[in-house]
Amino acid sequence: MKLSKFFMQSAAAAALFGLALATPSFAQDKFPSKDITFVVQAAAGGASDRTSRAIAAELEKDLGVNVIVENRPGATGTVAFAHVAEQPADGYTIGFGPVEFAIAEHIGYDFNRENYTYLAQVMDSPVVLAVRADSPYNTLEEFLEAAKTEELSVSNSGAASAFAAATFTLSKMTGAKLTGVPFDGGAPAVAAALGGHVDAVTAGAGETATAFADGTLKVLAIFSDKPHPMFEGVKTAKEQGYDLTFGAWGGVYGPAGIPDDVKEILEESIRKAVSSQTFLDAITPAGILPVYRPGDEWKAFVDAEAARYGEMLAQ
């Protein structure tokens, strides 16, 4: 019987396979001695996933063990955050911590920033404000001035995101009448601006770069400390007199209580990864800037951001 032959062959393969699995990995005292799991809070394919996989690849080279990327999307990332918090604090489970670390607690999620060990910030994707090429506005000033007399609509990539907060804060700060229109992701938000359905868009640098390069979108301001290499000639909001920075930043974290020696090894390895050329090549074309802050500094930054978003989202 053919079927049974198929089964016998599979069984043989299984035996071989089992043998391969059973090969003992020798336990070592020094960290790391086994595979590391890197939890990503978004589905495969986005900016968080891309950055995480680039970091994981570098960590793999540096630490000499497998770093397995695990996507656990859902609930603004808090599914992944909660999962990591429940894992043993031995450094073998780490994850990607995005700007939602500062936002989640303010929009009704069960999330506590103190439940984590902060290893390092690795990236920042600044928010930009852009209008269609044929729009009458050429500077942030002109745009806000116009919004004082008539209501202008500004699309963004989603409710209660850093992008939505940027619009909201801008209008609160200046008294301009801006209506935030949340879309399901950055790309449709940009498309709405390109199609002239909204007056402007706040989106990530990467999402607007294509249209900017093609000349179909004018970028009025970039909400970052320093100019962005992809947007030549675009001034920061600060340079135009509005001291505001917004970014979809991210870093690497683990469960609270990772021992100091393990933490040091990871921090050092992440620092090397962020400055590596492969990492740069993987993230900069997508408009993401490499930003390194060591754990303690990043934690302070997260706390400051959380306080800021708390004010912005409380209304």
């Binding site: 049974s4 089964f7 016998m8 599979s10 069984a11 396979f17 397995i68």
Partner: peptide, 23 residues
């Protein structure tokens, strides 16, 4: 035979496809 071999074969196929191929 079926009760032992088939489950093992299915488990291995899935493990190979997901864990090894798709990671």
């Amino acid at each position: 035979k079926g009760l032992v071999i088939f489950p093992v074969a299915v488990a291995i196929f899935i493990y190979g496809l997901f864990h090894l191929l798709l990671r």
